[in-house]
């Protein structure tokens, strides 16, 4: 399902412009990371995808739907949105009930709900914790519950707001696996993140925002090369890229394996 954002402008009721004309197309199956400083408009942009915010002017299209003509509840069929803080959504007595809530709200058949919930629990490695109360779990696992609860809605597009914040190495790896698995099943994954290394290693395309505008948009390879532009938005280059640069590599690398390959070849 393609996403088309054209000339999107958004102003808050007090007149402050949060988005100043954003045009981005995201084809089916994309792996896109959005980076930029707090206040650059990243969250404002993605909240337009599921109708939580409506364009002041311009157009946001999800497949054949114009978001202005659809309710948030309808758009929930197409966009799964994982909020940053899991505590803003957890309310059920067990992990399983929590994960069932989304697909139930969408009115899926019981059999389908069962299958989707099982798959989501499997993917997030929550199987053994299915009957526990989400609030008895650690914050890192609560984040997994929030993730599972959105994955079970089986939307073609999944949006994650800061998936790795406050997570340890094991759980960041788990999130990487989830991203890759979603990508493998043909879904579009969009993540807002400050973690440039996570972003370089797991995504294919990077959109850099600054002051309500897209300043860079392209394959990771090209975007991470733009050191000055990134620095102007307070984003550092990935650690591997910096290392390669210090060693005087002529090609841009950003993954440990690519680094070893280039090192080997030279």
């Amino acid at each position: 399902m393609n996403i088309e954002i054209k000339e999107l402008v958004f102003a808050y009721p007090n007149g402050v412009l949060a988005l100043e004309g954003v045009t981005v197309g995201i084809p089916t199956g994309s792996l896109v990371a959005i980076v930029g400083q707090n206040g650059a408009g990243k969250t404002t942009l993605v909240k337009h995808l599921n109708g939580l915010l409506r364009p002041t002017s311009g157009l946001v299209q999800i497949g054949d739907w114009d978001t202005r003509q659809r309710s948030v509840a309808e758009l929930a069929n197409r966009i799964g949105f994982i909020f940053q803080n899991p505590d803003d959504q957890l309310f059920c007595r067990t992990v399983k009930e929590e994960v069932q809530f989304g697909p139930r709200s969408l009115g899926f058949e019981n059999d389908r709900i069962e299958t989707l919930v099982e798959a989501a629990l499997e993917l997030t490695e929550l199987h053994e914790k299915a009957s526990q109360n989400p609030y008895d779990l650690s914050p890192a696992w609560r984040k997994m519950v929030a993730l599972a609860s959105i994955l079970a809605m089986d939307t073609p597009i999944v949006v994650m707001d800061e998936p790795t914040t406050g997570q340890d190495a094991v759980s960041i790896e788990r999130i990487s696996r989830i991203v890759q698995s979603l990508h493998g099943s043909g879904k579009t994954v969009i993540a807002i993140t400050h973690d440039i290394d996570f972003c370089a290693e797991n995504f294919e395309r990077m959109i850099v925002m600054r002051q309500g505008m897209v300043v860079l948009d392209g394959p990771i390879q090209e975007v991470v090369a733009e050191r000055e532009m990134l620095a102007s938005t307070y984003v550092e280059q990935p650690q591997i890229t910096r290392l390669a640069k210090r060693l005087g590599f002529s090609t841009i690398v950003y993954k440990p394996d690519d680094f070893i390959r280039v090192l080997h070849d030279s």
Binding site: V170, D257, I260
Partner: peptide, 19 residues
């Protein structure tokens, strides 16, 4: 389950490759 820096990661891989 403790994270190590990308620098350690890459050096460890390099060590295995004799680099």
């Amino acid at each position: 389950g403790i994270g190590i820096s990308r620098y350690t990661q890459v050096a460890r891989k390099a060590l295995q490759a004799g680099l």
